[in-house]
Design a protein around this nucleic acid. Structure first.
Lengths: 230, 230
DNA sequence: CTTCATTTGTAAAAGAATTGTAAACACCCG
DNA sequence: CGGGTGTTTACAATTCTTTTACAAATGAAG
């Protein structure tokens, strides 16, 4: 439940259902808050801190459609997953037009709910592809090494080498293997290329204060280690 | 078929259904193309010029799930509306996990299809009157970049390029994709055109004191960044 | 403990490729 | 025609990759 966790707001008047959704999503690492009526839900949602709203339609007071419209009118951009026992066509259309992004009919399967949540978050760009090691991540989309606040861009070759190392994890990668994977098995690159690029990468890792080191094992190749790990 | 219409690709092997969807959407002002098998659909989709894919699941050859996975693997970001007679839970989950954004069960009502399409496009930022990044907004009606008091008019090409960049947000857009979206995939424009227009846009952004920069990522394309963000 | 051969690390350059910019030209529409 | 827009070309500037050369580290043998 770190500061960078994905935040989800559940607005559902059936307390038991709300709690079970909360438990389900928290089990998957999301940071979930549940409220039990529409007015409170709209108020929370407008804070703008949530990445996703899960919204029941039939509630006393403000109903789901009203909440959705109000929230959208206030320029809240979070995707809305509408949840309801009303499976009728007209309801679905009204929900979508009110600003919902998905319409799920009760009773629903927990796996389906998760699949929806993931699909909505994926579209939001909340699912970044990255490879992580120690305090450092390689963002595959932007070819960038990230460590806390700092980050540094890698060139295409640097990126390929770094990715190979990260994918191998603790395992050793021989230079031969790296050459084959990065330069192609039929290129005329030589092992020193790997050494040169390992040098570049070590500099960049150091420049962002990473605790990841590229360790050389004589005659065996390279592998990653996290500082303080032996 | 202006460069600025919303483009939709329908992939559906039942020709009659495909044509009726096409007619329905064209009636609403969308620019629709229909293809009748998965392989062709995947190929078209990967051009990256469409704003939305409507995808049947059960097709000979590549089925809808396979098309979705392939298209997503190629980093095509357009939302996918899956369309199918299979209404079973497992199918819905599989579809969502394959990269779909919505799952609509046949037979469906035309109004519901439209509501879905609108919901998906709304989320993409295709139905708003301005796109915002940093301290700067692109007014879609007047083709004008606005930053505080200052503003500057964009030419049609400049506008198309700027909009593509804004819609991609943080993500990189390859020059190939920009060419396809702005000039059309069958034009004979070359990558240098993109570079030239990026140059124009940078000048105009600077002239109104925008804190938005167009960053080049070598061999990967361009993306936006807000000054002060690293 | 030295010496030597081997492997790994680093710096600097030359070379290649990509990206940026300026400017000339074509075109279209009032 | 004239002004703005779009296209194309050519070249300059920048960045990345490869190459070279040599220094530093390692480990085995004497």
């Amino acid at each position: 439940m770190g500061a960078d966790a994905v935040k989800i707001l559940v607005i559902e008047d059936e307390v038991l259902l709300a709690e079970s959704i909360k438990a389900l999503l928290e089990g998957k690492g999301f940071d979930v808050e549940a409220v039990y009526d529409g007015a409170t839900g709209a108020e929370y949602a407008e804070l703008g801190v949530y990445d996703l709203l899960i919204l029941d339609v039939m509630m006393p007071g403000l109903n789901g459609y009203q909440v959705a419209r109000q929230v959208r009118a206030r320029r809240c951009a979070a995707p809305i997953l509408m949840l309801t026992a009303k499976g009728e066509l007209e309801d679905r259309i009204e929900g979508l037009n009110a600003g919902a992004d998905y319409y799920l009919t009760k009773p629903f399967d927990s796996r389906e709910l998760l699949a929806c949540v993931n699909a909505l978050l994926r579209r939001q760009g909340n699912q970044v592809d990255e490879l992580v090691c120690g305090n450092t991540a390689l963002d595959l989309a932007s070819c960038t090494l990230v460590c806390g606040e700092k980050q540094v861009r890698l060139s295409a070759r640097e990126f390929d080498v770094m990715r190979a190392l990260l994918q191998a994890g603790e395992k050793n990668l021989s230079k031969e293997t790296i050459l084959a994977r990065v330069w192609g098995y039929d290129s005329n690159a030589v092992e020193n290329h790997v050494e040169v690029y390992v040098g570049f990468l070590r500099k960049k890792l150091a420049s962002i204060g990473s605790n990841v080191r590229i360790e050389a094992v004589r005659r065996q190749g390279y592998h990653l280690e996290v500082d303080g790990t032996c």
